[in-house]
Design a protein around this nucleic acid. Sequence first.
DNA 1: TGCAATTGCTTAAACGATTAAGCGCAGCAC
DNA 2: GTGCTGCGCTTAATCGTTTAAGCAATTGCA
Lengths: 347, 347
Amino acid sequence: MASQRPGPNLSRIATSLGVSVATVSNALSGKGRVSNALIERIRTHAAELGYVPSQAGRALRTGRSGVLGLVLPDIANPLFPKIAQAIEFAASAAGYGVLIADSRGDITAQTEAINRLVERGVDGMVVVPRRATRISAASCPVAVIDTASTPGNTVAADHWQGGREIAAHLAGLGHKQILIIGNNQESNVQNDRAGGIRAGLQPGMRSEMLWIERLENETGAGCRLGLAEKTRQGFTAFAALSDLQALRALTELQQEGISVPTDVSVTGFDDLIWSPVVTPSLTTVRMDMDTIAEIAISALVDRINESGTREGVLVTAETERVPMQLVIRQSSGLANPAPKTSEMENL
Amino acid sequence: MASQRPGPNLSRIATSLGVSVATVSNALSGKGRVSNALIERIRTHAAELGYVPSQAGRALRTGRSGVLGLVLPDIANPLFPKIAQAIEFAASAAGYGVLIADSRGDITAQTEAINRLVERGVDGMVVVPRRATRISAASCPVAVIDTASTPGNTVAADHWQGGREIAAHLAGLGHKQILIIGNNQESNVQNDRAGGIRAGLQPGMRSEMLWIERLENETGAGCRLGLAEKTRQGFTAFAALSDLQALRALTELQQEGISVPTDVSVTGFDDLIWSPVVTPSLTTVRMDMDTIAEIAISALVDRINESGTREGVLVTAETERVPMQLVIRQSSGLANPAPKTSEMENL
DNA sequence: TGCAATTGCTTAAACGATTAAGCGCAGCAC
DNA sequence: GTGCTGCGCTTAATCGTTTAAGCAATTGCA
């Protein structure tokens, strides 16, 4: 029943060359003592046979699966592609495969997902935790990517600094009243970003906070954010804590006939897929996911190689915060000192 | 060096209960002949010891890793989250883990990614192929999710029918001239969708095609699509072949002062994350990714269980096309017979 | 020349599970 | 009482790899 693996194995190479399996293994891994000539012969023969080591056999013997887990939290998080891509790239550069586990929104499902990964024998995992959840240490090394203020965090973009960048940018454009638009008050990331913005305000500037999820709980999902009213109140800049909210703000303003960036400015976070191609293109802050992934993976790999024990450990890296980069596009412009009725060009 | 697995193994349970490992294995898997009383004892004892079978050991013996591969093609495809989520859900319901492999855009990288998965010993894989590429059969069962017109396709949304839904919807609203906006002419999916739309046009309706990538090659990335001009030419509906293009169209129109849906209608495809929350919310066509994933996975699993041979086989399913569902929101409305200057409400 | 150290390879024991085969014993029929 | 069947369990082989230990043969050094 159990289908044979197609390719050759060590012993096939060994018998075919008239040596022992151990020698073949040593020759290929470069570990034991084998003469250079024989190493050469074995390597070429293995290559021409198309030998691929069996991960199962190796895993059983070494206790290492060569696989890392990736636990993602939010349903259909638009950052998912970037994160998954960066992690997969960094992991496979380090010789690891990536097993994904998505906790479909459920809070308890996160621990379930983690357990499933552990059962599959991952050597370690990267967790992007659900809002404000702590990772109860699993039985393998864990790297957490969230925000520097999360306990147990390994590495993250410097969301706070990103917020300051936005604030500085808007200050430079002469904006005085800034509406910060976030989704969820529980999110550590969003709180850090908002904190950064507020911290970066110059004297004479003020900000107000708008949490969409709270608004929707009262008014219903997909409701208007009331930005026209805010504009009338004198707000000239809308700083969203994610490009998704920025997009929502942008289209609502446009629909109300308020011109961006002529009348008001809109900024976002994350440089998501649509940010460069909407009109006007979105000014945003980009996180260096590749660097973050690299740091997380290498911290994880270090830990895996070092630890004889397989205890659950929250991995830490030297560089905790990776700077974010301001991307200035069309949606932010000079503050309009007295915002008035937008002048529409006729068709 | 090789760290011991933390949990107990079969032999620990066996000796602890004074029986043989084989019996424990049989009791837990329910395969051999073991008395009910003993089965009960073994199961409870295994449970209280927190026994987790070693995937490595099992994989080595059975030749099955219990892991499926998922090969995704396009850089940062915004559908990624839905696909990955659906596949992961279906796979883990079937007892499989999901190993991801992203071919960072490269065309050759797709085969590389596939090879990496094979080397990791996946039992089968799901491939969402890069535009118009054929999958050269790997050495394991492969399910292809693309569009029905792709050779070797296993299961897909019925993009053609989705196009007809859009056409019927727009026809019902009285639109006569429809601009179909796609990204890439090579995409089988986009071609099917466009074909469906054209096929669904009523007598007296006409359509024109706009490929963004081609336009950008001439005019530069992120350029305007010239939709205001198209509106002046009498187009009243813009049917994008993906919500990303729909969003681009929507914001450009709004920026030009053309009101959606009062002056013109905009529709998309895929019901991506932002579609419900932009203003106006996007009329689109949703694919039933859950069903598609389920079909793909079950076809794959069937094949894995059935085949003694481990040949590379393109798996086929009975249900090839999963119907798409029209989601009517605010961005589509009655055709404006004589589109005129939009009337803006003042602030 | 003699003894130790090094080299180049082999032997063999794991890792943890699955599973075919075997073995004793009870029950039953003739 | 003998032969057969079926039950409940054990024995043992196996998957493919790694790696400690061992064993000749050669080299080095005095």
